[in-house]
Each structure stands twice: as C-alpha cells, then as structure tokens.
Design a protein around this nucleic acid. Structure first.
Lengths: 184, 184, 184, 184
DNA sequence: CATGAATGAGGTTTCATTCAT
DNA sequence: AATGAATGAAACCTCATTCAT
C-alpha cells in the first residue's frame, strides 16, 4: 500500500471514529468532509458503510485488548483488573454509539469485529484469572457473566450520561459483588 | 376524540412497538402497514416520527412504572425489589431497540418520555427504599447508582444476547454487590 | 387505483417511451422531468429502473400484437402479412433502443415482457398461417425462422439508419425469399 | 512506441474485446484487470472509454474485412459469398454487444470505425459483385440493401438467441430471396 | 377523519478520468 | 512509461412528510 493511501486510510478511520462516536446516524459524507477527502475515497478504502463502521469498531476493540494485555503483566493483579474495568466503563460512550450505528445498519458483526471481540474477551479473561488467583476476585465468578457485567456497566454508564461520582458509586457496588467472601 | 380514532391510535402504538422493537431502522410505512391503516393516519396521530417513537417509549416506561407500583405493596420488600430488577433485565430487548431508534433519530427525549422516565425512577426508588428498610439491600447504596446498575444490566444482557443461565449468574453478582454486609 | 395515479402512470410511461427511445442510456430523472412529476413518483409506480423499461417494452409489444390482431381479419391475407411485416420494420427504431437499454441494464426480460412477446409471436403466427393458406407465402417456412427474419430485418433497418428506398429494396429481397415457388 | 507499450496496447484491446463482448455495461476497470495492467495504462493508450470501444469495434470490422478479402479470390464466387454471409451471422453475438456499448455511450462512430466500416462494406461489395457475375446472386440486388440484410440477419440471430437449426432455416429464406430467377 | 399518492431532500454507491509516485 | 489512489459528478433508490380525494 502506498504511503499516501495509508495516510488517508488512517485519517478516514480517525474521522469516522469521531463522527460516528458523536452521532450513530451520521452520513458517510460527513466522514469524508472531516477527513478532508472526497467521498469516493472513503468508498475506495471501505467499499460499504457497514465495512467502515466495522473497521472503526474493530479498532476500538483492539485498543482495549492491547490495554488489557499491558495490564496483564502488572504487579498487582487485583488492581490491574479493577483499573481496566473502570477504564472501559469510563470510555464507553463513543464506542457504544458506533455499536448502535452498526445495529442500526442491520449488521450484527463482521468477521474482523468478531475476531477482535474474541481477542478482547480473552485478554480480559487473563486479567480475571490473575485477579482470582491473587485472591482479589471471588473464584466462583466465570468469564461469561463477568464480561456481561463489564458490558452492562459500560452501557449503563453511557445510557444515563452518568456523572463521575455516581459512576464510581455504581462501580463500587459492582466491585463488591465481585470480591470474595460472598455466599451466593 | 372519536371512538375509531382512539382505536387507531392504539393500533398504531402497538404496531410501532413491535416494528421498532424488531429493528430500530424500520420505516414509518412499515408501522402503518402492520397497523392496517394508511400512512397519513399515522402522521395525523403522531405528527412526527420522533413523536411516535417517544410515545412508544413512554408507554414502555409507564408499564414498567405500573409494575413497580404493584410490587411496592408486596409482602416481602426484598423479594419484590429483586424480582422487579430481574424482570426488567429479562425483558429489556425490544425496549432497548426503541431507545436506540430514538437516539439514532437525534432526539434525546421529549417531555412525555422524560416525565415517564422520572415516574419509573421514582417507583423504582420506592422499591429500593423498602428493600433497604427491610434489610435486604445495603443502606449505603443510593438510587442514582442502583438505577444506573439496573439500566446497565439490562443493556448488557441485551447487547450480548446472553443465555438465561449466564444472565442469572451475572445478576447473582450484581445482587451480591447490593446486599448488606460489605465494607466499601 | 386513483384517477390521478392512473394519469401519472400513463404520463410516466409515455415520457419513458420517448426518453429511452431516443437514448438507451437516459436516466430515470430525465423521464420524471419530461413527465412533469417528481423522481420519487416514478419509483412509486415502477420500483426499479428495469421494471420501468420492461413496462415500456411490454407496451410496445402489446401495441404490435393488437395491430397484428386487427390485420388477422383483413380480406387479403397475403397483403395483410406483408403490410404488417413492413410496418414493424419501419417503426423498429425506438423500440430497439428500449430493448438495448434493457440488455444494458442486465435484465434479459421480465415476466410481463416475456408474455407480451409470446402474444405478439402468436398473433404474427396467425398472420403467417393465413398468408400461407392463401398461397401468398411458401408453406415450408415455419414461424421460428420467419419471426427471426422479422426481428432481423427490423434491426438491420435500424442499425444502419436506412433510407426508405433502400429499406424497401431490402424488404423486397426478404419478401421474395418468403414467396412460394422456391426449391430450398 | 516502445515494445512493452505495444504489448500492453494489444493486451488491452484483447481484454476489452472479451469484456465488452460479454457485457456492454462493463467498466473500464474490468478491462484493466483482465489485461493485467493498471487502469491509468488503459487511459494512456485510449484517452477515453469511447475511443477504446471504437478501437475494439474497428478491430472487429477489420478482421471481417480481411476475411472477406481472402474469400474474394476463392474459386467459387457464389459459395464464397454465402459462406461469408453465414459466418458473419454466426459470429455476430459479441460484436453486437460492442456496437451496443458504443451507442449506449452516445457515440455514433469515430473516424477509424467509419473507415473500417467502409472497408468492410467495400470488401463485401466485391464478394457480392463476383457472386452476381457468376450467376449465383440476382443482379438486381444492390449493395446497400444486401448489406442491410447482412446486418439485420446478424442482429436478428443474436437478439433472439437463435438455435443453429432455426438460424440456418432463416438464412435459407434470405438466400432464396437473393438467388436469381425472381420477378420482383 | 382516513387514505394513498406525490414530493424533494438526502444517502449510498459507481465510474470515467486526472494526479502523484 | 506504468501504476494505483483520488476525485466529483451522477445514478438509483428511500423516507419522512404534505396534498388531494
């Protein structure tokens, strides 16, 4: 791929992230305008609007996975787990808008997005494992439900446009449910 | 309002609930078709698509509020609270789609929807109060964060198309976080 | 169907006949403009460009079939046959352009067009039968090849933008081949 | 012109012949892809799509003219004439598609194509002359109408996707009309 | 009051053609 | 000279909304 093409691809992705993050109903032309390229250039790089949305979504998931991978080697596994959890919830806003745009476009998820989702889930699973082995998280909580809780907390925080204090108190409740020493 | 007009209004609302619940990108004409009326009739009752969406959304919220009000006089306040919580999460699917349709249409929330939302929140607050007074829920959890948790759990369950078992395990984690006896 | 809708449908068909007859590459918007309606009205009547083209084509075929049916009761079967043949060839120009537009659009032929084509072929077959029984046309010429000859003569006349005299001399050659008294 | 440039020109022409022969609505990029060159190379050799189409068309006409020239020295002029006629009709399919692509593009014919057309017409005229002098074709048939008949038979055969048997029977009718011994 | 046709403003996508490498 | 990316004009089609019946 040529250098200028790579450049443009990145600019388009960045623009799309911002535009769709702000409003799931945005048009492809808005993306082109913000990226400073012609509309046809967007379609050369992403032959379909759905593919563009998926690319943005995949990028988001991959970034989160990388962040999880970094934290997987932290000194304190418990702290790493909860920090990651909190970060995801805090940054969920625009990622969610993109997910909504995808479902609104009628696509459940492309191959790339599915793979990236699986990657994130696995990386998060490592964080959970280590936190459980270190005694920071109860051992009877399995990945599926904890992951669902992560998603839920993210969406809850976004949907209600939570103030930071309330969000933190909500997270405290979630964390308490995850800590060991419970009967359930 | 004439009797047939009232009839039509109800049929349109019912149809809209089903159509938008299935796909947030549905068109107003689809609603008219399912309701068995002409499209102009839909616009006579709801001068704008956003108003129709809000009416459906409001209806949903009011139904939940009524359900909460019923449970507010139940014998066991703790059981009532957790039952309501679980029901909301279980039925979240289509309501969520309507909320997405609203945000996709660029509308944050109309007056009616806001009022209905406040009503639901208040009714849920009563359930929470009584559960706290009965000792079933920790007293240091305030309505804002518990409500956010309710919304989040609903959305999380929907977004990931959770199987019932996983959903129940996730709810168990959430409930544990809400029970008294924690230091946080 | 409402009166105004029927009116518009007819006006659209008429406009399409003229526009596509003049240039197979014409756009749907040109048709709308000539018909004096909005573009969406065209698409309401003919949900697809191909369907519009087929409707025009079908109309043409039906008109020819009707003309053949009229001539099928003429006093002189031979004269009727050759007159019809000549008329088809003379008027072939714009009909052909429509057929080209259809193939350019990637459609071979819709159900209606196929039926109309079969109708025309059958009506022409009657003319041929009667001409053969009256001794004006050789009896060893079957419908398939005579029909192919009709199409061919039409296309030949159109493709080369023949002057009337040349066209008549060409037809004379064709007619001679069709008359009885040959060995082939 | 450099050797590789000449190579490319030929490969582009060959590819264009195949691509446009298959579908008149094909894009220039398809031609480049099949030719194995970049799209800009196509435009370097043929500055316009119409010019490319004309070049292909011209090539076809020239090949036919060469074939006619070969047959012009055959032993039996009558056989030569009818053989050429039949060959042209049999192979008309893809050439016709190219002619359609040209008219769809709004171009009647460029200088080269016109010259090539005239060349073919003249070569065919020689075949006709010799066939007439040898008594195989009636002498009162002039080139214009016979040529129109050739074109028409070609197009008719193609347009209706004729089976070989029917095509031959149609040709027999045409040939009978061309043979001497008729009064017309 | 209900209907369905008409509207025009966009949205996505394609293509011939031009530039930068 | 060859490449492939970029372009903008236009094509087809959809939809919320307004009129005429």
């Amino acid at each position: 791929m040529r250098a200028d093409a790579r450049d443009n691809r990145l600019r388009i992705l960045t623009a799309a992230e911002e535009v769709f993050g702000a409003s799931p109903a945005a048009s492809t032309e808005d993306v082109a305008k913000l990226a400073g390229v012609g509309i046809a250039t967007v379609f050369r790089h992403f032959p379909t609007k759905v593919e563009l949305l998926e690319a943005v979504y995949t990028l988001r998931l991959e970034r989160l996975r990388d962040r999880a991978a970094e934290l997987a080697v932290a000194a304190d596994p418990g702290e790493a787990f909860f920090e990651f959890f909190g970060q995801v919830v805090a940054e969920a806003g625009s990622k969610l808008a993109i997910a909504e745009a995808l479902t609104a476009a009628g696509s459940v998820a492309g191959e790339d997005a599915r793979r990236a989702g699986a990657g994130l889930r696995q990386a998060f699973g490592e964080l959970l494992d280590r936190a459980q082995q270190s005694g920071a998280v109860r051992v009877d909580a399995a990945l599926p439900e904890v992951y669902a809780l992560l998603i839920g907390a993210s969406r809850g925080a976004t949907a209600t446009a939570l103030e930071p204090e309330v969000r933190n108190r909500m997270l405290a409740l979630v964390y308490d449910g995850l800590r060991p020493g419970r009967s359930s």
